[in-house]
Amino acid sequence: MSVTTSNYYGKIFISDEAIASVAASAALECVGVVDLVNKKLSDNFAELFKKQQLGKGVKVITNGNRIFIDLFVILKYGISISAVAESIKKTIKYKVEEFSGMIVDAVNVNVVGVRV
């Protein structure tokens, strides 16, 4: 799926993958985020065959021009998880809205691990 918007000249499609890679790079810039991980096993197989996966650990669901993002992260040990999760949400919402011009409805952060 993709988000679409149209103006006077025609339509603009932004694919989920594009949004996922923006979200992933924004998340990695946040303090305390060590890595993003795939949630499903099949994603790991896909990683074996593809060289690089930009939107790893990010699930994007779009509906019309609304965006919902699920994020699977590994955080660093010894930081405040709630503070980091809060800053991830804020950063991703801002970066994706700036990039796509569409509204991000929800950013769900799943902390799947902690690295010491």
């Binding site: 946040c30 010894g78 405040s80």
Partner: peptide, 18 residues
């Protein structure tokens, strides 16, 4: 510092303090 960390800069500050 860890308990009260807020935002990116707060988390960095708390790490420096730690």
């Amino acid at each position: 510092a860890l308990r009260g960390a807020r935002g990116n800069s707060g988390v960095i500050l708390s790490q420096i303090i730690r």
